[in-house]
Amino acid sequence: MWISPAFHLKVIRAYDALVTQQPHPGAIDIRDPKQLAIVALQLVEVNRDLQAKVDTMQVAVDAHHRIAKASAGSRCVTDAAKDLQVRPKDLFSWLSANRWIYRRPGGSGWLAYQDRIQAGLLEHKVHTVERPDGTDKVVENLLVTPKGLAKLAVAFRTPNAA
């Protein structure tokens, strides 16, 4: 059986280290202040990375706290704007600019894009209203779901809201 010289040398060095009880090449000597300083610096860097992740997640946590204060269930866009502490006009503009809602040519009401409905962010509620002349009129209401409100709260987060 043939063994490569490089592998043979690794085995001999590992055996020598084991017999003489030398530390493993990747091991840290806790008695060496230089190695401890390097480890401490690495831990500080890892801590910074984790803090950045926590800060990013805090945005979502704050948004959920704001939504928890609001009542459960879907809300009209105006009430959603109140919950988000933004002007209704600004929310309608943002929703339109970001392809959440649109108006049909000649139509008066806002409609949700189908992908936003399928994602569970918006929904439509249909009501039948009786006109003064006795005829019925179908009225559609655009509603923001709790999931949609959470997503909007992240987009419209304010520093003083918690």
Rank of each mutant, 00 (worst) to 15 (best):
M1K: 11
W2A: 15
W2D: 15
W2Y: 15
I3P: 06
A6K: 15
H8G: 11
L9S: 13
V11M: 13
I12D: 05
Y15E: 15
D16T: 07
A17G: 07
A17N: 09
L18G: 13
T20P: 04
T20F: 12
H24F: 02
H24K: 04
P25F: 15
G26P: 00
G26A: 08
A27G: 03
I28P: 00
K34F: 10
Q35M: 12
Q35H: 06
Q35E: 15
L36K: 15
A37F: 07
I38A: 15
I38S: 14
I38P: 01
V39T: 06
V39D: 05
V39E: 11
L43A: 09
E45Q: 14
E45T: 13
V46Y: 08
V46C: 04
N47P: 00
R48N: 07
L50F: 02
A52C: 03
K53V: 08
D55I: 00
T56L: 13
M57P: 00
Q58I: 05
Q58W: 09
D62L: 08
D62T: 08
D62I: 03
A63I: 11
H65S: 03
R66N: 06
K69W: 10
K69H: 14
K69Q: 15
A72M: 13
S74H: 07
C76H: 03
A80N: 00
A80R: 00
K82C: 02
D83Q: 01
V86K: 02
R87S: 01
P88I: 01
K89M: 08
D90T: 05
L91E: 04
F92D: 00
F92Q: 04
S93G: 02
W94G: 01
A97Q: 09
W100C: 06
I101A: 10
Y102G: 12
R103Y: 11
R104L: 10
P105T: 14
G107M: 02
S108M: 10
G109S: 12
G109A: 14
W110V: 02
A112T: 04
Y113D: 09
Q114S: 11
R116P: 03
A119Q: 08
A119S: 08
G120L: 07
L121Y: 07
L122Q: 04
E123P: 13
E123N: 12
E123C: 14
K125N: 09
V126H: 10
H127A: 11
T128V: 14
T128P: 01
V129N: 12
V129W: 11
V129G: 06
E130M: 15
R131S: 14
P132Y: 09
D133F: 09
D133R: 05
D133A: 13
D133W: 12
D133G: 07
G134F: 04
G134E: 03
T135H: 14
T135L: 10
T135P: 02
D136E: 10
K137Y: 06
N141T: 12
N141S: 13
N141R: 14
L142D: 01
L142Q: 01
L143Y: 03
L143N: 09
L143S: 04
L143G: 03
V144S: 02
V144M: 02
T145W: 07
P146E: 04
K147D: 12
K147C: 02
K151E: 05
K151L: 01
L152V: 03
A153S: 06
V154Q: 09
V154N: 00
R157D: 10
N160G: 05
N160L: 10
A162Q: 11
A162V: 11
